[in-house]
Write a protein that binds this DNA or RNA. Structure first.
Lengths: 203, 203, 203, 203
DNA sequence: TATGAATGAGTCTTCATTCAT
DNA sequence: AATGAATGAAGACTCATTCAT
């Protein structure tokens, strides 16, 4: 109604304040869920007043979206954020094994955030499209790395996408589910076998 | 203190009412999300008053949990709910292809519900354990079918679990994401190849 | 609106049902308070359905009022409900001592009911006037007994009323409050002294 | 779970708001009863929104308890809140007569509040203990005043407590009941006689 | 007569958002 | 730029009462 102007911070202090809010809000939402996080908690955690929040953000959702923008790369497939990976036939399995271990040893936050974001996917078109885009970006990025390392193969994007899913499922299972009937060491080896298989088949 | 008694329906009419509420509530929650569904919407969709809802259910969550109980089998891997599957080496790929197509052609409800349930997994211990248990049940069920069809292989449960994840990801991707850059026919074939591969390797 | 006819029971069974409801309702209300007692509890305790309640009573308040009518004599100054009291100068103190002990040894229900009724006095004109009337009836009754026993004295009604208050306060204090700093034996003796004093002064 | 934080007011404005709510809530509850007073009425009477109520108070009961804390001294035996009372044998009767008249001429609020509080005594442990404590405090205070004025007598606390009851009953009767058959001037004199009697007997 | 299923207005409470300072 | 007090719409849940059987 009153169309409160959203301020784009210029001064350093303002920028810091905005960042603090994004971090506080995103952390809380990823931890407790979107609906269990209220603006007052966010403001408190950020060390600011509730009022100021609405000078930097349109609404609560806007905070979350900003966090998504800012931190998504750390959350989605952070294991691929390694510069200068050198894939060879010999180290392919090892590289993926390391990635998986790295992902798992990462703090749980990522996993929870991932779920929360997934959950918002169908209730919020913007979240969905953001998520969507990031996923494809990552697929492309990895495909390119592979190509640059002479791992070109037909339908590489489809394959990489499947691989990403395999890793994601595995890590999620290990971090979260803990089905006692399953042996996660064996499962990890099986997944790596699959990854190697799919990336090396010639059709 | 006030301890409103939850009624266990006796008359046929009231059993129908309870069922209508479960169906309406579960449908809405799966469609719009838990927090975007309120009791008044549920009552309206079920064609009853808000009051009656609380004679059959402790709270909104209870409705959802009941729905989970009642419909979970239709939602989690409904493609495996086929009696008398006969796996042979020759039809293995075909059977899975049919399953995937069946899953996809299934109403979207499943997929959305799946997400919502996944989302509630970390905020609600009961949902989590329910989900968790169902998943393992299904893993066991499929493992057994395979064993009965002479597809025994070491670590079959781990393998089946990976297969289920592959199918789930694929179907979800197709139903939901629709990345234009990906060719889903190819992706489906690739996934089936993987499934066959993982289920037939001898270690 | 629809002016559901309130039935005046004729058959013996009906009368019994009505009485059961009155008893159940009045007991519960006296125990838990008017607002903490709901009709469903009353029906359940009376062993009838909720629907039937409204064939015998206009509303919840009507049940309470009926109970008041029926049981008030047992609640208000039940110690005076002794037939053929013989007051003499010598046994005056003893009689009151007995009354007090009787009152106290009476089940607590009376005290709670008394409070609840007192509480409703100012929110419900009918309860108030009922209570009011009963109190005066009792004052008159006791005054008459005293007069018949040659304890006439000027302003006897005022005196009796004060005496009733003294007894009521004392009993209530003993049954309820349990101020540890006060010695209730001494207090009882003091109150009896006062009663004797007020009833025997000659002005 | 959601644990709405109760704010302790800092700014002058908010202290005023909190006080307004306490006053409005306590007045209404004392007038109309706890269950006939809803938060919306309280907010309206206080001239604030319903939301703000829950920033200062946990719930409706909390408002009432706060009022109790704040206004109890004005309600329980306000006639004793006179500093520097000088009791002598000659003015004893007069002092109490004045107190009674003062109590009665006091606004009715006290009487109604007193009843409501009494009523809540058995349904709410906190109210009960508060009420309870105040009563004993007052008993002690008056006992001490009497002792300091050389009106020491055995079992003074028990006597004072009886006196307080006599006054309370009398005032309540006059303010509230208005039994037409009783002459309140005479009754007042009789009560004062009793008070003098009980406070001057030597055992 | 009786049952118990159903109604829906009413209540408490929360929280994103705005406003006065 | 910032504070935190205030708003009020919306939601979960209760319960006296009525209705279909």
């Amino acid at each position: 109604m009153s169309e409160t102007e959203i301020r784009e911070p210029i001064q350093k202090r303002s920028i810091e304040t905005k960042d603090k809010i994004i971090k506080a809000g995103f952390d809380l939402i990823c931890h407790d869920g979107y609906y269990n996080t209220n603006t007052s908690k966010i403001a408190k955690k950020a060390g600011v007043s509730t009022g100021i929040v609405y000078q930097y953000f349109k609404d609560k959702r806007d905070i979350f979206l900003s966090g998504l923008n800012k931190y998504a790369d750390d959350i989605f497939y952070p294991m691929f954020n390694i510069p200068n990976i050198n894939f060879t036939k010999d180290n392919l399995a090892n590289i993926f094994k390391n990635m998986i271990q790295k992902y798992i040893s990462n703090h749980k936050l990522s996993a929870i955030a991932h779920e929360e974001i997934t959950a918002m996917t169908h209730s919020d078109k913007d979240v969905a499209s953001h998520f969507h885009k990031k996923e494809m970006e990552m697929t492309n990025k990895i495909s390119n790395i592979l190509i640059n390392n002479n791992f070109n193969t037909p339908n590489i994007k489809e394959k990489v996408h499947i691989v990403m899913g395999l890793i994601d499922n595995l890590c999620h299972e290990i971090v979260y589910h803990k089905h006692k009937e399953l042996d996660y060491n064996i499962m990890t080896d099986l997944v790596i076998d699959e990854i190697v298989h799919i990336l090396t088949i010639k059709d």
